[in-house]
Design a protein around this nucleic acid. Structure first.
Lengths: 146, 146
DNA sequence: CATATTGTTTAATCTATACTGAACAATATA
DNA sequence: TATATTGTTCAGTATAGATTAAACAATATG
């Protein structure tokens, strides 16, 4: 592995950590994802711990997060005790499904509020309707991506 | 204002605070947004502070966040010294533009990494391409919402 | 059986960020 | 001019969440 490529990879891992963090996902989870994008699968538990310079406990919790999100999956190698990880088939679609769940929840909160408030609060009703329409549209759009 | 409606409103404000937090926006900013959706504009600085039981400092910083996001705007009433706030014309479109900026940034990070890595790393190249295609599509889709 | 390896769990610590409260500047009002 | 009102800023505190380290359970290996 030449030096320049290694710098690029380290940089990518670092940046994906920050991007994940901005998206509300733990930084280390973002780094794990980046590592699995770069390095050919399967990539082992201890390799991740060593590569990212992070405790085994953190690898354990963060890989679990990614598995639950449907982004990576755990595999094994015959004759090896270690766990290995690889990207799932369509990892980003799973990511979107998580986001879609949240927009659906927001739309529901708005809808319930609207129904419970008296019609006389016409200003509030109108603004809630606008808000609701936006989130429903957003939700449908994200659904169409999956 | 009847009791049931008040409970509904408090509940909505609380939930929007949590939703905002999950989206990486300060909780109080979410509550301010909710208050402006419910109560007819213009709603004053001190009213916000009192309604949400939050310090003036916090109202100051959080209204600034929302103004910078393009979601609310500051107004004045003639003969009054206080600042007032109201929702902007298309508040949610502005919200989307912020998200779109982030997806564009992610796509750029992926693209730069891909270009810098040698073609021999064919596995990495392939997975980066897949990732890049997804983010470009996501970015275009969000753009279409605005 | 004793030891080593591996992943999980949890209490403690660290870190990032939000919020408060007080000082301050700007402006109005008496 | 003196006082009151209003919004901002910033140092300090509080809070939430992530990470670590160590204890543990499960399993393999000698």
């Amino acid at each position: 592995m030449d030096k320049a490529a290694q710098v690029t990879i380290d940089d990518f891992i670092e940046k994906m950590g920050l991007i994940a963090q901005a998206d509300g996902i733990p930084r280390i989870a973002g780094k794990v994802l980046a590592a699995l994008v770069i390095y050919d699968e399967p990539f082992s538990f201890s390799q991740l711990s060593e590569l990212l310079q992070v405790s085994r406990g953190s690898i354990s919790t963060n890989t679990r997060v990614l598995v639950n999100l449907g982004i990576i999956e755990r595999t094994t190698k015959r004759g090896e005790r270690q766990d290995y990880f690889k990207l799932k088939e369509s990892p980003y679609v799973s990511l979107m499904q998580g986001i879609q769940t949240r927009t659906a929840h927001t739309a529901r909160v708005i809808s319930e509020t609207k129904q419970r408030l008296p019609a006389e609060l016409s200003g509030a009703q109108q603004r809630l309707t606008e808000m609701q329409q936006f989130y429903l549209k957003l939700n449908r759009t994200i659904k169409s991506l999956t």
